[in-house]
């Protein structure tokens, strides 16, 4: 974690569990860290510009919002077209994460991963069909892996050391 100075690290650690739900959240963080509200806002802004913070946002719980089925759809896509097609798959409204990853032949021929959420498996299957149509002849094989159990789920951890 070389790009963060000690003050940034303290801000990351103080906000890792979430922002305080008070009218002036940045002032509250500032008082906990003995900084000014301006410092906290400008450092958070700088981290957002650098991409260290992707966004400040609410993460909805798909399960609680009725999206109880999630399928990791995986695709064996022609290497020459995977970047262009991946962007189109990633732009679909029901795809929440989309990555190109290496194959692990012979066990694993798939190089495009797209996470699809739906209210049930039949909805996930319908969406998978939409992706298949988009990829058309550039896709050789695909499958979907459903999660059957969450074995562990933790947020981002930061080590306690200062640099």
């Amino acid at each position: 974690m070389t790009m963060l100075d000690p003050i940034d690290r303290r801000i990351v650690a103080a906000t890792g569990g979430g922002l305080p739900l008070v009218e002036r959240p940045y002032a509250q963080i500032a008082s906990e860290l003995e900084l000014t509200e301006d410092d906290v806002i400008s450092r958070l802004s700088a981290m957002q510009t650098q991409g260290i913070i992707r966004r400040i946002a609410l993460a909805p719980n798909h399960y609680r919002l009725g999206m109880t089925a999630n399928g990791m759809t995986v695709w064996d896509v022609d290497d020459a077209h995977v970047s262009d097609l991946g962007k189109r798959v990633g732009a679909l409204p029901f795809v929440t994460h989309c990555y190109r990853r290496p194959r692990a032949l012979p066990q694993w021929p798939y190089n495009l991963f797209a996470m699809v959420h739906g209210s049930d498996r039949s909805e996930v299957e319908a969406k998978r069909l939409e992706i298949a149509q988009l990829l058309s002849e550039f896709c050789r094989a695909n499958t979907v892996l459903y999660s059957t159990r969450i074995l562990k789920k933790t947020g981002l951890r930061l080590s306690q050391k200062e640099d």
Binding site: M3, L4, V12, I53, R55, I56, L58, L156
Partner: peptide
């Protein structure tokens, strides 16, 4: 539990 978290989302790769 309708939302899991509200706050900054960090990119661990951007932090090294």
């Amino acid at each position: 539990g309708a939302a899991t978290r509200f706050g900054p989302f960090f990119d661990a790769e951007a932090m090294g």
